[in-house]
């Protein structure tokens, strides 16, 4: 049996625990900065914070200082470009972007986005790493929110604008999109599953990056994030969820 690959995972918000869980399940040895201490002999480091870019920057800079220079630093780029994250570090060539939305076990594809500064060997290692998780990969150019999180977030944003304008009830918006277009989930229910903070991170990140009205976040989305109504994970989003058993929620209404 081969020695398990050691991975350092950092990240506040829903993606931190999700990535730790998935990597452990796939046989990786997962550590946090605290657990790793001074002897950082990991082969990969992941930084997966999306909702707070100040924290993300601190974590990325700390990892960059602690890790040997050749270790790939793989960062989620839902709210910021990989190029910008790389610019925060002293070793930008080892930074590579990636990302998808939760739940991680449902999607079978991970998008990888190299920064302008990313070394080709780091990109190759990133692709190998995600393939080892049993995921297909697509390498796309570096832009906030990649492809899937960007498109889904804008669908959700439009559904929220329609909700704000009282065009229809949440259930009718979701039912319309499921039955009229065959989407796997209605957009508001989907937002609850992904986490409203994650969706907001993508739209706000695009708005900040592109400086276009097109990417204006729906005000109700921002308010719900501020209120802590982040979706299924906390029991309340566009719908409310009753705790079934610890850590699991069932849709209530």
């Amino acid at each position: 049996m081969s020695t398990p690959i050691k991975v350092l995972v950092e990240g506040v918000g829903p993606q931190g625990d999700a990535w730790k869980g998935m990597l452990q399940e796939k046989g990786f040895l997962v550590q946090s900065i605290e657990e790793a201490g001074d002897g950082l002999d990991v082969q990969f480091a992941l930084e997966v914070t999306n909702s707070d870019l100040t924290i993300k920057r601190q974590r990325v800079q700390k990892l960059d200082q602690m890790l040997p220079t050749g270790i790939p630093l793989l960062v989620t780029t839902l709210a910021v470009t990989a190029t910008e994250v790389a610019s925060w570090t002293r070793h930008p060539q080892r930074v590579c972007g990636f990302g998808t939305f939760l739940p991680l076990e449902e999607g079978n594809l991970i998008e990888i986005a190299p920064a302008l500064q990313t070394d080709p060997s780091i990109l190759a290692q990133a692709a190998t790493f995600f393939s080892a998780l049993g995921k297909e990969t697509e390498v796309v150019e570096d832009e906030v929110g990649l492809v899937f999180p960007r498109i889904l977030s804008l669908i959700i944003n439009e559904a929220i604008f329609a909700l704000i304008e009282r065009v229809a009830e949440p259930e009718d918006i979701d039912q319309g999109m499921k039955l009229g277009t065959n989407y796997p989930f209605g957009p508001l229910r989907w937002a609850d599953r992904v986490g409203l903070d994650e969706v907001y991170s993508v739209i706000d990140g695009l708005h900040r990056e592109m400086k276009e009205e097109r990417y204006r976040p729906a005000p109700l989305l921002r308010k719900m994030v501020l209120a802590g109504w982040l979706g299924e994970g906390v029991g309340r989003g566009f719908y409310t969820y009753e705790i079934e058993k610890e850590g699991n929620y069932a849709k209530q209404s």
Binding site: V147, A162, V167, D172, P187
Partner: peptide, 27 residues
């Protein structure tokens, strides 16, 4: 399975589905 919609451009489906095509084209 009916849904009730206030008269507005694209109603629900044609409106909320726009980014699926439009943002993909932009990308």
């Amino acid at each position: 399975k009916p849904v009730k919609v206030k008269d507005s451009p694209g109603f629900i489906v044609n409106r909320v589905a726009r980014p699926y095509y439009n943002e993909a084209l932009r990308i």
